[in-house]
C-alpha cells in the first residue's frame, strides 16, 4: 500500500452528494483485469461535459478531491479507488463515505477523510475563490490546513499506523499464522466445505 504522511496539494471542489461508485467509474470499464490504467474512466459519464469540474484547466494537477456527503456508496468495485489514484488523487475529503469504498481506499493508501459538512463547504469556497490555494493533509498530526482553515480529523489508530508505515496488511496478518492455525483447530467440524460439492450429488 502507498504510504501517507503529510501531503500538500491543490483541490477539486465536487459540489455534489451521493456520488456512488457507478458514477466514479461506470460499469463498462470494469472488464479490465489490472489495477492500473483507469485514469480515463474516472467520472467517465460526466467528463463529456466541458464544464464538469474535473475538466476545468484551473484544477489540472489537483491531488485532493473535496466531495459532498455519501461519497462512494453502492458497488464494492475497488476500481473506483484505482481510478481516483491513477488520475492523481492522494486524498478524498467528504462529510460521509460509503463504508466499502472507504475501506478500499484506506487499503490502497488513498486517504478517505471525513470532515464536517460545514468545513467541506468552506473548503469548496476557498478552492473556488483560488484554485491554487494549497491544502495540507497532515496524517501525523491529524489536521487539515487550508488558508484560514485548521481542522482536526480522526482516523482509527490501526489504519493510521498502517498508512504512516505503508506496511502490507497481508504480510502483517501472515505474521499471525500460528493464531490462525489455532483458531482453525477450534472451528466447528460440521461447517461446510466447498470442495465437498465437487464429488457430491448435483441438486435434484
Amino acid at each position: 500500500m502507498k504510504q501517507f504522511t503529510v501531503h500538500t496539494g491543490t483541490g477539486v471542489p465536487l459540489r455534489r452528494g451521493n456520488v456512488d461508485t457507478d458514477q466514479i467509474i461506470p460499469v463498462r470499464f470494469l472488464t479490465h483485469s489490472s489495477r492500473t490504467g483507469h485514469a480515463d474512466a474516472l467520472f467517465a459519464d460526466w467528463r463529456d461535459d466541458p464544464s464538469f469540474v474535473l475538466n476545468r484547466p484551473e484544477h489540472r494537477g489537483a491531488t485532493i478531491l473535496v466531495a459532498g456527503t455519501e461519497f462512494g456508496t453502492g458497488s464494492s468495485r475497488e476500481y473506483a479507488v484505482w481510478a481516483l489514484q491513477d488520475y492523481g488523487f492522494r486524498c478524498v475529503i467528504a462529510p460521509r463515505f460509503g463504508d466499502i469504498f472507504r475501506e478500499n481506499a484506506l487499503m490502497n493508501g488513498l486517504l478517505a477523510l471525513v470532515l464536517p459538512a460545514a468545513v467541506v463547504e468552506r473548503l469548496w469556497d476557498l478552492v473556488e475563490d483560488d484554485p491554487r490555494v494549497p491544502i495540507t493533509v497532515d496524517l501525523e498530526r491529524l489536521r487539515v490546513r487550508c488558508a484560514g482553515v485548521d481542522e482536526p480529523f480522526s482516523l482509527d489508530e490501526e489504519i493510521r499506523a498502517r498508512l504512516l508505515s505503508g506496511l502490507d496488511p497481508v504480510m502483517e496478518t501472515l505474521g499471525h499464522h500460528e493464531e490462525i492455525s489455532d483458531y482453525e483447530r477450534r472451528r466447528r467440524p460440521t461447517l461446510p466445505t466447498t470442495t465437498a460439492l465437487l464429488d457430491g450429488p448435483l441438486p435434484a
Binding site: 489495477r35 464494492s76 468495485r77 475497488e78 475501506e103 478500499n104 487499503m107 496488511p169 497481508v170
Partner: peptide
C-alpha cells in the same frame, strides 16, 4: 461485501 484488496487478504489468510 468486500473490495479486491480484502479478497487478496482473505485468499492469503
Amino acid at each position: 461485501g468486500i473490495g479486491t484488496s480484502q479478497v487478496e487478504h482473505v485468499l492469503a489468510t
